[in-house]
């Protein structure tokens, strides 16, 4: 929902705290589930993720979630699905060049990022998403990847 997703960008700091606290719990729970029942619950988990993130962020289930690096604003709502925005067409009032009634997703993302603890993560280069992950659960994928490897990657990429 548009108003809720804008609320998330405005309150990105609080969302970041909740996100940082909850994501290890979610990911380890998923790891346990996977050990116990294998892939059997993947469909309901994906459904749940789509519902929760859909309501909160207008999540498009690209399967390559970068919310915490984009000011808690889902970049897939940008009509050009830019992952490193904004483009050069933002209107003077900060609205989107394509959809004049919508705030530019990247204006919200930038403002959101400024309020966050890891405010400079928005400067990381995000390569275009892997289209094979579209519609799949980013939670399940992340739970399979080692959390350590992910952190290291980020550190290598940040160029202040």
């Amino acid at each position: 929902m548009y108003s809720l997703r804008r609320f998330a960008s405005r309150h990105s700091r609080a969302y970041e705290t909740v996100y940082n606290a909850s994501s290890p719990i979610i990911l380890s729970t998923l790891r346990v589930i996977n050990k116990l029942v294998g892939e059997r619950l993947n469909t309901p988990i994906t459904w749940l993720e789509a519902k929760v993130k859909g309501v909160l962020f207008d999540c498009k289930m690209c399967g390559n979630c970068v919310l915490s690096s984009t000011g808690m604003t889902c970049p897939m709502n940008c009509p050009k699905t830019i992952r490193n925005g904004p483009c050069g067409g933002v209107r003077e009032n900060g609205n989107c060049e394509v959809n004049a009634d919508m705030k530019c997703v990247w204006v919200d993302a930038w403002d959101g990022a400024q309020k966050m603890q890891h405010s400079r993560e928005i400067e990381l280069i995000q390569f275009a998403p892997n289209q094979q992950h579209q519609g799949s659960s980013a939670w399940i994928r992340l739970s399979k990847e080692s959390a350590n490897i992910k952190l290291q990657d980020i550190e290598l990429e940040v160029k202040p």
Binding site: K80, N84, G85, I125
Partner: peptide, 20 residues
């Protein structure tokens, strides 16, 4: 965006962005 031009009915691709 395709909506700006003379073929607004076209499918926009945007697989990459300028930085990618």
């Amino acid at each position: 965006d395709v909506s700006a031009g003379d073929h607004p009915e076209a499918k926009p691709v945007f697989d990459l962005d300028s930085i990618s």
